[in-house]
């Protein structure tokens, strides 16, 4: 670079590594902010390895002094004493979450495509209802929701955990914004070649939307995996309980179960983090794209 910058110059072999003062400040500042953001997560991980005396210490310490696997053993003991095997809870959670994610992605991309690319009468009205519904918190409609799920005869079935989550307003909004970017000429070309609408959808639209799926998968997965209110309301059969319910019942065991609880929390959080890490780049891109338009 011809321009001479102020700051630090470090000699590395033949070339000089230039570090300008502003860049150093940038790193310091951004690292500090990242610390604040990532702190609770680090705390979850660290706490799961703390022995019981460190867990109950006051004032609490951030880092673990004598890491131990005791909490995980406690967790196994705690879940071993329940009437329903813990593996069944995990299977319940995995099954409902996977089915919900699959249906949500399919149903919302199908609907969003027709909303974005076909001119339906009443399309504007439908869309504005969706946007208004985005502002309404779900907690408020619990009772009417229960009445409908009950009316459909889905109480104590897995459907009660799946169906209410499939048609979310957020999913639809995100997909619709993303569908707007599909070039119309591509669809027209397919139409001229005699492709049916269903074929256009499966061959062109669905693959085009793949970054948006990634985002939907992450969000739907997180909300299903962590949902603790749905199973409490719709499910009374103990064998059908999902993971969050099983883990929160551990914490009712009192102080002695504190360790098992921290290990359970870590295990609950891990799949979410893994899914996010796998899809993170696409999630952020999609959020950015749908933000502009």
């Amino acid at each position: 670079m011809a321009m001479v910058r102020k700051g630090l110059h470090i000699k590395m072999g033949k070339s000089y590594l230039q570090i300008s003062t502003s860049r150093v400040l940038l790193y310091i500042f951004i690292t500090a902010l990242v610390c604040f953001t990532a702190m609770p997560l680090i705390y979850v991980v660290v706490t799961a390895f703390k022995p019981i005396d460190e867990l109950l210490k006051f004032p609490p310490q951030f880092f673990v002094r004598k890491p131990t696997m005791q909490n995980f053993n406690d967790l196994i003991v705690a879940v071993g004493s329940t009437s329903v095997p813990f593996l069944r809870n995990i299977a319940n959670s995995v099954f409902t979450t996977v089915v919900t994610v699959f249906l949500a992605v399919f149903v919302s991309s199908l609907g969003a495509y027709s909303m974005a690319k076909m001119d339906l009468p009443l399309k504007k009205q439908i869309f504005s209802v969706i946007v208004a519904a985005l502002m309404f918190p779900g907690e408020v409609t619990t009772i009417p929701n229960y009445l409908i799920v009950d009316g459909l005869g889905m109480i104590n079935t897995y459907w009660a955990l799946i169906i209410p989550k499939v048609a979310g307003a957020f999913n639809f909004f995100l997909m619709k914004q993303f569908c707007e970017q599909i070039p119309t000429s591509l669809l027209e070309a397919a139409r001229i070649d005699g492709a049916t609408e269903l074929k256009i959808f499966t061959r062109i639209v669905f693959p085009f939307l793949s970054p948006a799926w990634a985002t939907l998968i992450v969000f739907t997965f997180t909300s299903c995996w962590n949902d603790s209110s749905g199973p409490l309301i719709y499910i009374t059969n103990e064998a059908m309980r999902t993971l969050p319910i099983a883990i929160s019942s551990i914490s009712t065991g009192g102080l002695a179960r504190q360790g098992a609880m921290t290990a359970g929390t870590l295990i609950m959080t891990a799949p979410t983090i893994i899914i996010y890490t796998l899809m993170q780049r696409r999630v952020i891109e999609t959020m950015a794209h749908t933000g502009i338009k």
Binding site: P40, L41, V44, V218, F219, T222, S223, W225, N226, D227, S228, P244, T265, L266, M268, T269, T272, I273, Y276
Partner: peptide, 8 residues
């Protein structure tokens, strides 16, 4: 991602 989480 985490904010809405049960664990959090």
């Amino acid at each position: 991602i985490l904010g809405s989480g049960f664990a959090m």
